[in-house]
Design a protein around this nucleic acid. Structure first.
Lengths: 292, 292
DNA sequence: AAACTGTCTATTGTGGATAAAAGACAAAAT
DNA sequence: ATTTTGTCTTTTATCCACAATAGACAGTTT
């Protein structure tokens, strides 16, 4: 197989949800924009829907014939892109499986393990190398530098520099800048989650990312914004791995965020710095604790 | 051809220089260490040297038969690795050829242009993307973000943050840390070049990189050190492109470096910050000037 | 005993092939 | 006049093959 048709399958599943809500589908270009795929893929979806007797399709007429059933959907495993599969598989190996720093990483073995070609694994490793967890020896293997205490300290050092700077520039945004509205929405969500923390504490991780990314984005510096990718991936897999005291930790972080948000809104540099530092300090401690 | 034998050719050329200086070559493993290649490559080199009647090789005995002639060397074009060729070719396109920001980059076209396979171009682009000059649209083309004024400003903003922090930690290195000796050597070179600036001003670029990399390295932070790669590549190609007032600019930068070095040696934080800021400011101005 | 060589195997780097997906352009429909 | 569709071409994502290179191991030499 040259290329997996995961784009098609994923878009098909999403299109089924649209279909469930109307009696006829819009034009091909409009569907393409909605689903974020090309017309070629849209036409493949429509063809498949016709085959499944879900749709009567003739040029502009796209009449829904019946509601989609669970078996019409493609299984979730088939809609993940290959690079996501490789990423997950790799992260599981290095975070879960006792991967020692200094260990060699073998493209071929990794590819066989995942059941994929070497090219894809190789491209993944190249992309992943910017996170500083692996390093290439040319013409030879990769070296796992490991998710160590040093890594966490180096990561948080840069994060703190970047976030303090970004927070300061956030305060300087014009009052009508859309970021303030985003900040309001994020604050509201914080209150909502805190009000029902026992049931909703798991939503923190995603909200955390959204909040910090908003702050970083206000720096208008691509290097600062891009760096946040590293934070995201580290915390993302980290939360999956380390769940001790999650409820408590998240509640504390939410409170710190609210304080930080209030400081941003005050536009008082000293207050912002204090709130930002306090939160970043506890975030760093949380990360360090979970390492050993 | 599956793989270029540039490693062999380059190591062969370097081995010829060793051969010119002795009457017999050392053991295979020792040669391997000296040249930084595997024994397989060393044996290929020895075989080739035998063919050219340069060497009588029997097990441990590797007797030099004659001095290498210019025609024994492989031509320089054949010793460059494919990724270097792609990099140069790509940089020429985007720096020299009026490449508009927003332009699409086509893997296939680039590969045809350079005369190479798509895989290598693709891998280059992935590696290169961390420099923030291009961006990928999945399942579609790359976008050239361009070497713009914004790019230069974002780059120097982060550079200044990192270098100020690194310079401060440099001052905190133990007096017997090898970095101090490196600093002395670099300072001596500065004096030497300044003493003969008219003839040697071109050596500045390399020395500049060496000096700043030394400072960044003292941060002991992989993200800070890795970021310096971006500075390196930008300045490297930039110096090739913009040569106006090179002699003057370099002389001024050398003086600033000497001041900065003296400040580092004084270990006085305030003085270090002043010297560092002054130099970074003029480096930024130089870069910005050359952009439009 | 330590280092070196001969031989063999495994892995990386790179081009080429192919299905999936994007996208261009003209004809058709509103 | 714009938007939509039909058709076709181009490009990307991925696998595979193969030469270059690295590396392992046993036997040999110092």
């Amino acid at each position: 197989m040259a290329k997996q048709n995961t784009v098609f399958k994923d878009a098909f599943n999403r299109c089924l949800k649209l279909l469930a809500e109307t009696s006829s589908l819009p034009s091909e270009p409009e569907l393409g924009t909605t689903l974020g795929v090309s017309r070629t893929t849209i036409r493949a979806i429509l063809t498949r829907m016709e085959e499944l007797q879900l749709l009567a399709w003739d040029k502009r007429a796209k009449v829904v014939l019946r509601q989609p059933k669970p078996e019409d959907y493609y299984p979730a495993e088939e809609t993940d892109s290959l690079s996501d599969i490789i990423e997950r598989s790799f992260m599981r190996r290095i975070l879960a499986g006792g991967a020692e720093p200094g260990m060699q990483i073998n493209e071929l073995e990794l590819a066989r393990d995942i059941g994929t070609g070497t090219t894809s694994v190789r491209e993944f490793l190249i992309r992943f190398s910017r996170f500083g967890l692996i390093e290439k020896r040319p013409n030879s293997h990769w070296i796992l530098k490991g998710f160590t205490r040093e890594f966490a300290l180096e990561l948080t050092e840069v994060r703190e520099m970047f976030e303090l700077r970004s927070a300061a520039s956030f305060a300087a945004l014009a009052p009508d800048h859309p970021a303030w509205a985003d900040l309001n929405r994020i604050e509201t969500l914080h209150h909502e989650i805190l009000a029902d923390i026992d049931n909703r504490y798991k939503e923190f991780s995603e909200l955390d990312e959204r909040f910090h990314l908003l702050v970083h984005t206000s720096s208008s510096n691509r290097f600062i914004v891009d760096f946040y990718d590293i934070i995201t991936i580290v915390f993302h897999y980290h939360y999956q791995w380390n769940k001790t005291n999650a409820r408590e930790r998240n509640a504390r972080a939410l409170e710190e965020h609210l304080d930080y948000i209030a400081a941003l809104r005050s536009r008082d540099p000293a207050r912002i710095e204090t709130a930002c530092r306090r939160h970043l300090k506890s975030a760093r401690e949380t990360l360090l604790q979970s390492i050993q």
